[in-house]
């Protein structure tokens, strides 16, 4: 827990680890991590999330395009085979879920599953490894897992939401989508035999209901990923606290360290599941939402 020349309490340690490296626009220019300027300010960038997200995205893009460019049409080598397994997995998921084809949805799903997987995987790095290294270079705050930043998860889910709207309008038309889908469901006044006079009432009710359902899609998508990863990261930080005083050895401290090591191992093993599962869920739900948007009910 010793850092920056002084020791921190457990609470400070946790708080420090949950603080992004921020660049915020104040009245007199951009400043780094000034609480008064950054909190509640929209014009702030979480530089760490953004950088790691971009690095991992670039890693995905270069890895895949490099291997695809050097791919053999005959017998694939191991790396190519691995990538083809991922490809087949995504392609299979898309084909099982969707009727018809789309030029966008499948590659989008591939991007999501690999990118989110990489971002989640950062969670398995020891919590203090990168922050401590960068501290030597004068960077005092660092969160290494982009998917524990709601900005990152919302950034993706809002993009997907925009795509849902785009597909809905394109496939069903404005009337078909707004009236047919949002207003005539789930209570269809025609089928229920409601008098024409009360139709607007029923439609308004439907519209509120369906809009909430609609908005719940990106919200649940991003909050699920964020929540899982944030909680996982928090668990790692808490477990890391157990190691904290190992530098001043005593029987109690060593005991805590051993318990921490065991817990860390167990949680990391469990987290491998969470990491891949969350990436899969995010991809799968994206496919489902987009294919729903493309198809008339």
């Amino acid at each position: 827990m010793a850092s920056e020349g002084g020791t921190k309490t457990g609470g400070e340690f946790i708080e420090h680890h949950l603080q992004n490296l921020q660049l915020c626009k104040g009245d007199d220019g951009w400043v780094w991590n000034v609480k008064e300027v950054c909190s509640g300010n929209f014009w702030a960038f979480n530089v760490d999330s953004m950088v790691f997200s971009l690095i991992l995205g670039l890693f995905f893009a270069t890895l895949f395009s490099y291997i695809v460019r050097n791919a053999s049409r005959g017998v694939p080598n191991r790396m190519q085979a691995l990538i083809e397994v991922v490809f087949d997995f995504v392609n299979g998921s898309v084909k099982d879920t969707m009727h018809g084809t789309s030029r966008l949805i499948a590659p989008l799903a591939l991007t999501i599953v690999v990118w989110v997987f990489f971002m989640n995987l950062m969670d398995l790095l020891p919590v203090d490894l990168l922050p401590r290294i960068l501290e030597l270079f004068g960077v005092h705050y660092l969160k290494v897992v982009p998917s524990t930043d709601p900005n990152i998860t919302f950034g993706m889910s809002i993009s997907i939401f925009l795509l849902i709207l785009y597909y809905s309008f394109r496939e069903k038309g404005v009337g078909g989508f707004v009236v047919g889908e949002l207003m005539m469901n789930p209570l269809n006044p025609r089928d229920l035999g409601v008098p024409k006079l009360f139709w607007p009432l029923v439609c308004a009710f439907n519209f509120i209901l369906e809009s909430v359902a609609m908005l719940a899609k990106p919200l649940s998508l991003s909050l699920r990923l964020f929540g899982n990863m944030y909680a996982g990261e928090l668990m790692f930080i808490l477990i890391a606290l157990l190691f904290g005083s190992i530098l001043t050895p005593s029987i109690a401290n060593i005991g805590l360290g051993v318990v921490g090591a065991v817990l860390h191992f167990l949680w990391a093993v469990f987290h491998i599941l969470v990491v891949s599962l969350q990436a899969y869920i995010f991809m799968m739900l994206t496919i489902v939402y987009l294919s729903q948007a493309k198809e008339a009910h």
Partner: peptide, 17 residues
Amino acid sequence: DLNATLLGQMLAFGVFA
């Protein structure tokens, strides 16, 4: 808080996709 990182991520997402 939600901040401009959101826009950056949306842009990056679009580019990578």
